[in-house]
Design a protein around this nucleic acid. Structure first.
Lengths: 140, 140
DNA sequence: CTGTATCCATATCGATACTG
DNA sequence: CAGTATCGATATGGATACAG
């Protein structure tokens, strides 16, 4: 992470990033971790909260449990009751995710503005060939 | 981000997170930003570096430019030359991404161990019906 | 070299139905 | 309630061919 000079290191970092994103990029997993950060929740509670389908929820839950980010407690009552909660590992994961969320929150206005002006530039004068110097379109 | 008490706020945060992940969860975009953090790069340079297809590269590049994270410089020479570089906004984005990468790096061993023991637990004794109390399968 | 367009395989995801 | 199984629509992404 510290010496981007070495090509091997670079490539290795890329690989790792790819894996994070594969695990983390999944919209649901992150939201589950986020929802669980406030405490234990049941299956249908999560389902309602996130507006996720059963399929995706149980799938994401299984992956998260497999990776050790959440713990599952099953009570053999009638009706059955299953509770999910964050493990210690899951809690450490919250931090970088929150950092990401914060970035998104801080810059979403800026990004939306960029997106709008980009769209305008295309439809507006048809001179997209200039392609020159619209760098650093900083926050509104 | 600070008062998870209010349900509206909660839901709002979820929405934002979803948007980040939609933009960021894309494996290629993050890697492009990462590659570009060392300086300007050309199209084929990125292509070789990341092992990405032309289609995905130009698509990701366009999205990134549209969002204002990267700037594109086009030189009408022969052969044509196009250079990409991070904008200021793009550079601010690096930080949370790096935090995420760091987390992955720090915990990948742990996660892989969890994953292995989870797989073993399933194939090992065939008694997946116990389903009882295998919570907190913490690090090896 | 820098792309765009097309085709095709696969992955993702929701809806639905069914089980314990 | 807490899942699993199946189906079908859509998104994703690579390979290839072609254009400026």
């Amino acid at each position: 992470m510290d010496h981007p000079d070495c090509p091997d290191q670079r490539h290795q970092n890329c690989r790792v990033m790819n894996e994070v994103l594969t695990r983390v990029g999944d919209r649901w997993s992150v939201q589950i971790v986020y929802a669980l950060s406030r405490g234990t929740m049941r299956f249908n509670e999560l389902k309602r909260e996130l507006g996720i389908s059963q399929r995706m929820l149980s799938e994401s839950l299984r992956d998260l449990e497999r990776d050790g980010l959440i713990a599952r407690r099953h009570f053999a009552t009638i009706p059955p009751r299953v509770e999910y909660e964050l493990t210690d590992l899951g809690r450490t994961f919250q931090e970088p995710v929150m950092a990401l969320a914060k970035w998104a929150l801080d810059h979403q206005t800026c990004i939306e503005a960029n997106r709008r002006s980009f769209a305008e530039a295309e439809t507006g004068h048809g001179a997209e060939a200039l392609a020159g110097e619209q760098a650093s379109p900083n926050r509104a």
